[in-house]
Amino acid sequence: MEHLGLSLALFGAALAAALAGIGSAIGIGVAGGAAAGVMTEDPNKFGSCLILQALPGTQGIYGLLIAFFVLNKLGLLGGGGAAALTWNQGLQILASCLPIAVVGWYSAIWQGKTSAASIQMISKKPEAMGKAIILPAMVETYAVLALLTSILMLMGVQVG
């Protein structure tokens, strides 16, 4: 049982990277399908389509960021050896990972759907690129807020 704390903390890091990553992969996939459809008509839209497709990708990065944050906090990076954790501390770190894991997962999927719709929009009205970028960014707000929550929670957890 002495390693339960560490295991819980690692489980949290895994959830953050994995769930947010899954969400981003789905979101980018959905947007990519729409982009490919638009580009069969007009290959010149590659640049703007790529930007819109990339938008739901940030959640995966946020998840990775939190995972690294946790690993760093546990002293698993750099070969210094893991910090000793009580199971309670491990559970706290797991809890801190949940906001970005869950919100990252769902928001990326919905952002991907919005991106896909925006890609459809610029296929008809290329001049509306500004508006097309803003609509998916509205969804991302909640991923940013979740990231912030995770970061603040993690900073508050005392380890060692």
Binding site: I61, L64, F68, F69, V144, L148, I151
Partner: peptide, 21 residues
């Protein structure tokens, strides 16, 4: 909503940190 200014600044700093690591 303006808390994103902290979060995004933090994000670029930590991504940079991870790369250096």
């Amino acid at each position: 909503s303006y808390s994103r200014l902290l979060a995004l600044g933090f994000g670029s700093a930590v991504i940079g940190m991870v790369i250096n690591l």
